[in-house]
């Protein structure tokens, strides 16, 4: 968050009182995230090392068995590949499509307000409903299949390609895109309405063409917003549970579903494996996001 503000009028509070004021401001968030979030994460990691186990005696100490078991599992490896592929595809596709859309919408004069409100429409729709809607629309007996049957493209249900609950996760991707394109689009539209409009006007008066302004003024300016959006989308789609649970397949499972299966397994020995998987998932996302931020920061600095 690069928000730095400098006020011309410094407040007259003594330093000490100011410090206490800041502490009061951040304390509630600190308590919630420090205890619930960090605590939860920390206890999860401890359990992944075999501590606090319900079945195994604690005194055996720290062990990496759960990690070994998780990484040795064929299901986990296939799931990791699938999860990575879908999260990357969802992020890249939703960003590109949303950027094209946002620019198209911002250049459209007629019905612009209506189009924007329609785009906003599914931002608050729960992911569970999104997945359900995609299921009812794209399954072999869904509405698309019926239309394609009616116009003679396909014949019957089995002739229609398996899009939902398919091994390649196409249905999951469709559901993510359905939610994330509008999210990214509204984020970009918001950035397009910001201070960049004044810069754009200046460039226009100076005679720059639209495509030149787009490349040299508009996109560089809204780039930070796009980056933040991609990080949110990537982290979300990588860890999301509901959508793959509805639209996925038993094999290969998305990582979140595999984690949940280990966790709720009747055999409690599998619980540390679930914790190890959850820890590995968090670390992978954090690692990928960090690399991504490094690379993109360097790129933006070059410009």
């Amino acid at each position: 968050m690069g928000v730095e503000t400098k006020r011309a009028t410094p407040t007259t509070f003594p330093v000490r009182e100011k410090r206490i004021r800041v502490l009061w401001l951040i304390l509630p968030t600190l308590l919630v995230l420090g205890i619930l979030f960090l605590g939860g994460f920390f206890f999860g990691v401890l359990q992944s090392f075999g501590l606090f186990s319900v079945v195994v005696d604690d005194s055996s100490g720290v062990s990496l068995d759960a990690y070994r078991a998780a990484l040795a599992s064929e299901k986990v490896r296939a799931g990791l590949a699938l999860t990575f592929r879908i999260a990357v595809l969802a992020t890249v596709l939703s960003t590109i499509i949303a950027l094209i859309l946002a620019i198209s919408i911002s250049r459209t004069k007629r019905f612009q307000k209506l189009i924007i409100s329609l785009t906003q429409f599914n931002i608050p729709i729960p992911h569970v409903v999104a997945a359900t809607a995609i299921l009812l629309t794209f399954s072999q007996s869904g509405i698309i299949s019926r239309v394609s049957n009616a116009i003679g493209l396909t014949e019957g249900t089995s002739d229609f390609p398996i899009i939902t609950n398919d091994p390649s996760g196409f249905g999951i991707l469709l559901s993510f895109l359905w939610k994330e394109i509008p999210f990214m689009c509204i984020l970009i539209l918001g950035a397009l309405r910001g201070p960049v409009t004044a810069l754009d006007e200046t460039a226009k008066t100076l005679g720059a063409s639209y495509s030149y302004r787009l490349r040299k003024v508009i996109i560089p300016y809204i780039f930070p917003s796009i980056l933040s959006g991609t990080i949110i989308v990537f982290a979300f789609t990588f860890g999301s549970f509901e959508v793959p649970f509805i639209l996925g397949q038993p094999y290969p499972p998305m990582l979140s579903v595999a984690t949940y299966e280990f966790y709720t397994d009747r055999d409690l020995v599998n619980r540390p494996i679930a914790m190890a998987l959850a820890t590995l998932t968090s670390l992978s996302i954090a690692f990928l996001v960090l690399i991504y931020m490094r690379v993109t920061r360097r790129e933006t600095r070059k410009k």
């Binding site: 600190l30 960090l38 920390f42 984690t259 968090s282 996302i285």
Partner: peptide, 17 residues
């Protein structure tokens, strides 16, 4: 700390908590 929960999946934290 504020951004971390956007990165770490809810499932991981809840299982631990």
């Amino acid at each position: 700390l504020v951004l971390a929960p956007l990165i770490v999946p809810g499932l991981a934290v809840t299982m631990g908590i």
